[in-house]
C-alpha cells in the first residue's frame, strides 16, 4: 500500500484511531481501484486539502460550502448557536493535532464533487438526513435513513 508523508502508520501499514478514518480510507482505495481517479489525482487532492486548511480562504471552498449548507439546513440553529458550534469545532481541531484523516475526508469530498460523483448540495442534504435519522431513531435501534431521504 502506498503511503503518504505523515500518514499515521506502523510497520509500513496505515493505522486508524477511529472507525470513520478507516471508512474514509477504504472509500478512497475502492474508488481508485475501480478507476474513478488516479493515485496522482488523489495525491493532488490531498495536498490541496492540507493547503486549504493551512491557508483558509485561498482557492475554492467547496467543502466549506458543504458545511455551510448543512448549517443552513439545520434551520433554527443559525445565529448564536451556529457561531458557538463553529468555535467548538475550532477548539476540537486544535485539541487534535492528528488531523490527517480530516484532510483525507475533505479531499475525498472535494474530489467526489469535482468528478461529478455527488453534488455539493446532495452531500450536504445527506449529512443532515443522517443526523435526523439518528435523532428520530429510538435508542438502541439500528439507525437507518428514512426512505424519502434516499436519492432516487
Amino acid at each position: 500500500m502506498s503511503l503518504f508523508p505523515d500518514q499515521p502508520a506502523e510497520n509500513g501499514e496505515p493505522v486508524f484511531k477511529e472507525p470513520w478514518e478507516a471508512q474514509a480510507f477504504s472509500l478512497v482505495i475502492a474508488l481508485h481501484e475501480s478507476g474513478v481517479f488516479s493515485w496522482d489525482e488523489w495525491s493532488d487532492a490531498l495536498a490541496q486539502a492540507i493547503r486549504r486548511d493551512l491557508h483558509p480562504g485561498g482557492g475554492e471552498e467547496v467543502v466549506q460550502r458543504v458545511s455551510e449548507a448543512v448549517a443552513e439546513d439545520a434551520g433554527e440553529d443559525v445565529g448564536e448557536e451556529a457561531g458557538k458550534k463553529t468555535s467548538e469545532r475550532m477548539a476540537e481541531k486544535e485539541d487534535r493535532p492528528d488531523s490527517y484523516y480530516q484532510h483525507w475526508l475533505a479531499a475525498l469530498e472535494h474530489l467526489a464533487i469535482a468528478k461529478g460523483l455527488s453534488g455539493a448540495g446532495e452531500l450536504a442534504q445527506r449529512v443532515q438526513a443522517w443526523r435526523e435519522a439518528y435523532l428520530a431513531t429510538p435508542h438502541g435501534q439500528p439507525v437507518e435513513l428514512a426512505c424519502g431521504q434516499r436519492s432516487v
Binding site: 477511529e18 470513520w20 471508512q23 474514509a24 472509500l27 475502492a30 474508488l31 475501480s34 474513478v36 458545511s67 469545532r89 480530516q102 475526508l105 475525498l108 469530498e109 467526489a112 460523483l117 455527488s118 446532495e122 452531500l123 445527506r126 449529512v127 438526513a129 443522517w130 443526523r131 439518528y134 435523532l135 428520530a136 431513531t137 429510538p138 435508542h139 438502541g140 435501534q141 439507525v143 435513513l145 434516499r150 436519492s151
Partner: peptide
C-alpha cells in the same frame, strides 16, 4: 431513549458520502 445521539460531524460526513456512493453503485 426516544432518540439516538448523532455521532460527530466527521462520522456523519463519512456516512453521507459512503451511503451516496453505495447507492450510485460507485463502490
Amino acid at each position: 431513549h426516544d432518540h439516538t445521539d448523532p455521532p460527530s460531524d466527521l462520522e456523519l460526513r463519512v456516512k453521507a458520502l459512503e451511503s451516496l456512493l453505495l447507492e450510485k453503485g460507485l463502490v
